[in-house]
């Protein structure tokens, strides 16, 4: 009985997550980000995002797991632009997860906010609850003009209509890295061994990805940067993405 109680207690946060080896985390340095959108296309290529077409774009039905938000400050001529890449923040206390009636989204042991496409029934509650608006719905079954379908990544599902989708931190790459690590004497995944497509492409190296449970990882060091903050921190969603605000010379 006492072990049962112990076990129940172990399901409590944060102890539940502490047992595990990884907490995938990203830092994005806004002082490096130039808004070039290489990450946006990289994501589209890696994750089989559909080409929705002009008409559907006009209806705000685009699907971009990562997008660049732009904010102006001031008026001409003292006008400034701030870019901020917005992708799933993989919140530890994600509002979207409790929204799903069928467990299509939940939090896994690596600190990732999962999305199981083939479990989704499309209530879209998660998208309403998400304060970062990074969940995208498949309003249609999208097709690719032949032969564009040949570039589809076989490691990622092609989603059908009625399914919610979002950034997965490129789970397929994490999976491959873990697989390789396992082959290699069951070691843990090394820092830098796995990078999501957006991080890999970023020409200014504004994005850093890694395991924040590893104190030696690059991302752990970046997280300690005094410029670090989390977007909409007051909502207490505990995002896994730390942004570094713009600095001044």
């Amino acid at each position: 009985m006492s072990t049962f109680v112990e076990k129940l207690r172990s399901y409590r946060k944060p102890g539940y997550y502490d047992e595990f080896d990884y907490h995938w985390t990203m830092t994005i340095d806004l002082d490096r980000c130039t808004g070039c959108e290489a990450c946006v296309v990289a994501c589209q290529a890696e994750n089989n995002l559909p080409i929705v077409g002009e008409e559907r774009f006009a209806q705000s039905r685009e699907i971009k797991w990562i997008r660049i938000e732009r904010y102006w400050e001031g008026e001409y001529p003292n006008v400034k632009m701030g870019f901020i890449p917005m992708l799933c923040q993989q919140c530890d206390d994600a509002p979207c997860e409790t929204a799903c009636p069928v467990y299509a989204t939940y939090h896994n042991q690596d600190g990732l906010n999962t999305q199981i496409y083939n479990r989704c029934i499309g209530t879209r509650t998660c998208a309403v609850y998400c304060p970062y608006e990074v969940r995208y719905f498949n309003w249609f079954t999208y097709t690719w003009d032949e032969p564009l379908e040949q570039q589809l990544n076989p490691d990622v599902s092609v989603r059908e209509k009625g399914v919610m989708e979002k950034c997965t931190f490129c789970i397929q790459r994490i999976r491959i890295a873990k697989d390789n690590a396992k082959d290699d004497d069951e070691r843990r995944v090394r820092d830098g061994e796995v990078v999501p497509a957006c991080v890999q492409s970023c020409p200014t190296e504004a994005m850093v990805f890694g395991n924040s449970k590893d104190p030696g990882s690059k991302v752990s060091k970046m997280m300690k940067n005094p410029r670090g903050y989390k977007v909409l921190e007051e909502l207490n969603t505990s995002p896994s993405i730390v942004y570094l605000t713009k600095a001044h010379s």
Binding site: Y106, T114, I116, N118, D155
Partner: peptide, 11 residues
């Protein structure tokens, strides 16, 4: 290990 995590099998 993590055998019941959905993302172990679903992609």
């Amino acid at each position: 290990e993590n055998g019941r995590d959905c993302w172990t099998c679903h992609k």
